[in-house]
Nucleic acid binder design. Structure first.
Lengths: 196, 196
DNA sequence: TTCATAAGTGACCGAACGGTCATATTTGAA
DNA sequence: TTCAAATATGACCGTTCGGTCACTTATGAA
């Protein structure tokens, strides 16, 4: 990795929690200057403008979420264990993948009326997450782990909505009480689809 | 209502969809000037600064949501009908109470890391909504409409999380496909708690 | 009708915004 | 070691930001 590539990556990493917490519009390039200790001109050597940096940060934050999940999934064996791991990881809002919490909600809610490019990025992430859940269940059904008549596509949507809604509740409340209850309920729903 | 009070209310109403769509930080007083056709000085006659206006707008938008629900609830009789009405109203994301969608998610996700006053306002709205759902179910249990052992507090949290999570999905996708499925699933969960 | 008060105006303020560029420094292939 | 290209700097630019204020106009109680 060249010096330039390293600096570029360094800027993204330092900018990531700032954009995630303050939002894109409310984050100033001066915030990134402070965080990186770089001069303004240097930032513009690596990013042609703020929107390009923001887009890269969104991708980076989404990747941090994916990586955190992937790391936890290494231990999981069965489909049930994978789903439980997903629940444990995403409901652990006191240890988010990026400071500021789930980037899908943060950037999605900022972008839905103001930023079509970011909105589309987040939409893809949301859809692929649901697809991933659905696929895990499908594998579990094929493996004889779950009831074959389980509507896995619908449940994937419900599960995703429940945890994301729970994140909203938890972040605004400043605690994880409610989302832990949501996680527990979700696990019961999953267990009820288990074959003996 | 004096002229001043009328103007103050007028400003809040014109500002409401702007703050809801763009967010507080990204909304400029010049946006409000454009929307109201008032001079800047006039805005500051009625609001000492932008934060005061924003706080009033948040209250106003939360009230619009409550009013929309209340209006729809007039037809509802049983507890089940009330819950179904709630579901129909909040999942109708193509006709939100304020342009920009649910103010609880919009302002909640902006404020959680940046604006403690707004965060607290939203937290109260979220908690009272869950309390309202819980109370409706409790009434239904007392009336012999629902199973007495239904965990109504837990279900209120789950129901709220599901619809809010569904709103995130729907707004970012730009359609109501998924949230309609969520509403349908919620209605089935409710119906399954009905006594014959 | 009077007139003190309330409401509305828009030029103006300093600060912060995103972005540029001439210049200086560093890098690493040849 | 050389030196062109890559990287870093910070003063500077025009614009927009939230907010102020001297002033004009409108209101409505007496």
């Amino acid at each position: 990795m060249s010096k330039g590539e390293a600096t570029r990556q360094f800027i993204i990493e330092k900018a990531a929690p700032i954009f995630n917490k303050k939002g894109i519009a409310a984050t100033a390039m001066s915030d990134i200057m402070d965080a990186t200790k770089l001069a303004k001109g240097s930032l513009y050597v690596h990013f042609e403008n703020k929107d390009v940096l923001a887009a890269e940060v969104v991708d980076h934050n989404l990747n941090l979420g994916r990586k955190k999940l992937q790391a936890a999934l290494n231990i999981a064996g069965t489909s049930k264990e994978k789903l439980f791991t997903y629940i444990d990881v995403v409901t652990d809002i006191l240890n988010p993948p990026v400071p500021g919490g789930c980037p899908m909600i943060n950037f999605g809610m900022e972008a839905d009326d103001t930023n079509p490019e970011i909105k589309q990025k987040i939409n893809q992430a949301i859809e692929s997450t649901q697809q991933w859940i659905s696929d895990i269940i499908k594998q579990g059904i094929k493996a004889g782990e779950f009831r074959p008549d389980w509507n896995h596509k619908e449940f994937a949507t419900i599960m995703f909505a429940m945890v994301e809604g729970g994140i909203v509740i938890g972040r605004v409340a400043g605690n994880n009480t409610k989302i832990k209850a949501i996680g527990k309920a979700l696990k019961q729903m999953i267990s009820s689809q288990q074959l003996t």
